[in-house]
Design a protein around this nucleic acid. Structure first.
Lengths: 202, 202, 202, 202
DNA sequence: CATGAATGAGTCTTCATTCAT
DNA sequence: TATGAATGAAGACTCATTCAT
């Protein structure tokens, strides 16, 4: 069992089957959803037989959860690093959003998958207890914003949660648009954070 | 000697069957998704036989589309009225957001259904050519904001689309949260619009 | 739905499918057992498709139980009549045993099926709560023997249950032998009852 | 990264695997039957892998036959000793029946297994050519009864086989009852033999 | 308008078995 | 000796759909 690279995009027969199954199942679950993806299709995509799938994963549900967890962990890892970024509130928020968009462009399958969970987790699919996308990011962002609130960088009459959810909402919607083909302008992080901090009114 | 299939005894026959089918199918599609909802379940929920379904709708796909279109039209109608609201930019935005939240609380099934389409329309489900939720609302909102931009109520260095999407993103995320049980505070429309207009920074 | 004859042995396509399924499934369950009989085989034997089976019976378990109950009822009905036979204890017992052997030769499938349940009901098969073969017959026989006990026809030092079970055991073993091809001699009922009543010792 | 299959941690390795397999497989075959017992379950019960099973037994069929033969031999050995018992016909029969019940209580698994074969050997299971339970015992008993017949201890008008099968039937039915939880009274051997020899009539 | 009865293709999952190591 | 990994066939059951009535 060779140490698998974190996100192999190329189909590589030298990898162990377990990893190849995860790789092949992810885009299927992401695009068709849990119910509409059959184990036969997964096996076909992997290039193995159905019982081979069941050798590595005891059920379709377990396979789905394994896929989701893998990508969830990947996103966590990426965003976690963003916390340590130094600078002013604006700089730290911009860095975080930029990192976020970076994750999205680098791991479109993960995003398609997590977005699906995020909006309507129940479609007969197994419940994924880890909080999805924005719940994780909100935790990180909250740490940034709470620091700002205590430092007096926020208006006193604004709820920290409101600010937090406002930014996450802005970013999530842009991610959704990106999934439909709308690209991220280079300065989008700055623009979104600017709106959050200063508002749009004259 | 009745066969194994069962269907509930008596049902309200005052409405015509077509409407009853749409009513019964909507929450099923909304909660389980297209693929995970079977025609048998729909028939059971309606209290009719499967062929009766096929009498009114030529296929599962057609039934799904009919359900979606009905709720899409309902939302359009509600939001459309919001346009005529008079007043300042802030007042008009607040009215629009409030109306939006009102639609959500009054038509939870519609929201569950449309949100699912909105995020990832393809799950084996037929393509729904009408623009999803935020595309419709954005059309309306854009009319409000463009008026404001021309009237000089917006900062000149802010893109109107950015402002538009920022508000929609904030609102959508709150709608998502509402679906998970988080209620709308009474003054939420004011708070969101205030953040949009004035920002959160001191 | 024509009123089905109680024990149709001939495959008759004019009968309704439900009856034909019961007819075809009985010998399969009787000879292979529950676990080793597949719904595919049943469908093949019936000459219909698998879903047609599931239209009439919600599950393999339900089909099995329906088969068992049908034959159980048939045996009950036959033996029940034996109770009313008049005459001495010996005559009544002989009549009962003869009727018993008659049922066996007329309904070999029923016997193969019930014997299997009787000896080891649990093989993953659904539990059949009605008492099997000899439990039913023992009830009838007990009525005969108890009458005899009160009438002073039995030895006072013999337990009625012992006598009952002795006869049932003798008969059951002969039935088992018959299933392997050993025929019933014409006077076997008399011989068995004679041994029961008078013993084999000089 | 372990695959989905699991097998229990440590097991007693002091016995050789072949014996442990036989020990573990016997109750499974006895309770579920041949068809409903899977090699996976056997391996799990043994605490070894499936190929290890196939190292010792070429097929499921062979394993089943090995199990059956082992218990068949065990029963033979026990009953064989009963032959040498001295005394009157009554004493010898009582001794034999007592020994029989003793075997049953000491080897319940063997009995559950053999009883299943005894009644309906074919359930997709391999044909077990050795004669089943009562065929073996009948051989032994016949020797006793034939001696008695020649010695004039039996009624001249009673068929020796009838007497033989009568006793076996009585005993077998009691064994079956014992399997369902009805205990053996201490004096049951005497009671059964008494009925056989003297009958139940006054 | 609506149904009782049925179907072909598919669902997830497990089977006994094998083979390179 | 034994195993990790895999397979072809089959298991029970459900799917969307149809058709004669």
């Amino acid at each position: 069992m060779t140490p698998a690279s974190t996100h192999p995009s190329v189909q590589d027969t030298t990898q162990d089957l377990r990893t190849r199954v995860l790789d092949a199942a992810a885009p299927l679950f992401a695009d068709r959803g849990y119910a509409a993806t059959s184990m036969r299709e997964v096996a076909l995509a992997v290039g193995c037989t159905k019982p081979a799938l069941y050798y590595w994963f005891p059920s379709k549900e377990a396979l789905f959860l394994a896929v989701v967890e893998r990508y969830g962990r990947a996103m966590d890892a990426i965003l976690e690093e963003g916390l340590s970024h130094p600078g002013t509130l604006r700089e730290r928020l911009v860095a975080m959003v930029r990192r976020w968009f970076g994750f999205v462009t680098e791991h479109p399958v993960a995003v398609r998958l997590l977005v699906r969970l995020h909006t309507r987790p129940e479609e007969g699919a197994p419940v994924f207890d880890c909080q999805p996308m924005q719940a994780r990011t909100s935790h990180l962002m909250r740490r940034i914003l709470e620091g700002a609130g205590e430092g007096g960088e926020l208006r006193a009459d604004v709820d920290v949660d409101d600010a937090l959810l406002a930014l996450i909402g802005m970013v999530d919607l842009r991610v959704l648009l990106w999934l439909t083909g709308v690209p991220f302008p280079d300065d989008l992080p700055e623009r979104l954070v600017d709106i959050l901090l200063r508002g749009v009114a004259r």
